[in-house]
């Protein structure tokens, strides 16, 4: 038996919305520690990895490891029926072919029950090694979203270059070219909200090219976190991570574009 409950069901809806445009379906792997999911886009260029810790749930019970094969578009249809402040419970039997989703309003005056049919999904899993990245940038997620959206109107590839002082996003296209630089915030600024700052940890300067189409896709997760962390190395996939307070994180990996 697998059972979990979230006070803010809305968070789960936002999570599914952050995944469903990149991957159509995937396996929720549930074990005693939490829920994880990994999925690649159809062109095998981007990967999304979701890790939810049991501590983030108000109730969590997993007697045996369970794999829930889920079509995200179908799940999203059911989650649409959930109220913005509803509590969400998910239940599945060990060998069941469906999972139940229960939405309950704050005052318990409305309860909705949905059964989602599960799928057998045979998915390739990739081993993502723990790596020391050459540059790690933390910035406001809304700022990253705006940059990706605005630059994609000019070109389809962004060059991200990082130095100790700043991170620069450059783009070029038929109409011309441009760049936007964000400077590292002053470290002495104790009054400012940390989530508003740009923090750069640098081992050595890095420059890599990425397809904006995918980055724009990743920014669907902006609603989950005030900040985003970008980790870059040389000839390595970019990691774009959104952390949710105590619930866990959603990470996106994007293979670079290499100059021919």
């Amino acid at each position: 038996m697998f059972e979990c409950a979230l006070i803010q069901g809305e968070l789960f809806r936002k999570l599914i919305a952050s995944v469903q445009d990149l991957v159509q379906d995937g396996n929720f792997m549930c074990d005693a520690n939490g829920i994880s999911l990994q999925g690649m886009d159809s062109s095998h260029v981007a990967l999304v990895a979701l890790a939810l810790k049991k501590e983030g749930f108000v109730e969590y019970r997993c007697d045996r490891d369970v794999t829930l094969g889920i079509n995200f578009a179908n799940l999203a249809k059911m989650l649409k029926c959930m109220g913005a402040k509803d509590r969400l419970s998910i239940r599945a039997q060990d060998e069941g072919d469906s999972a139940s989703f229960v939405f309950e309003s704050e005052d318990s005056s409305r309860v909705s029950n949905f059964e989602l049919k599960l799928m057998q999904i045979d998915q390739e899993q990739l081993g993502v090694p723990e790596t020391q990245y050459k540059a790690v940038i933390r910035m406001p997620s809304s700022e990253f979203q705006r940059i990706c959206k605005d630059l994609s109107a000019i070109g389809d590839t962004v060059s991200i270059s990082v130095t100790k002082e700043a991170v620069k996003f450059s783009v070029g296209g038929d109409i011309g070219s441009g760049d936007m630089s964000l400077r590292q915030s002053e470290s002495g600024d104790v009054d400012g909200d940390d989530s508003e700052k740009v923090m750069i940890e640098l081992e050595e300067p890095v420059q890599q090219n990425f397809a904006l189409r995918y980055l724009n896709n990743f920014t669907k997760a902006t609603a989950l976190s005030k900040t985003v962390t970008l980790s870059l190395g040389t000839d390595m996939p970019l990691v774009t991570e959104y952390k949710m307070d105590n619930l866990g994180s959603i990470r996106y990996y994007l293979a670079p574009k290499i100059d021919e």
Partner: peptide
């Protein structure tokens, strides 16, 4: 001109 790499170049299948 730049070429889009695939993730399998960097990560191995498990």
């Amino acid at each position: 001109n730049s070429m889009q790499m695939e993730l399998s170049t960097f990560f191995s299948k498990v």
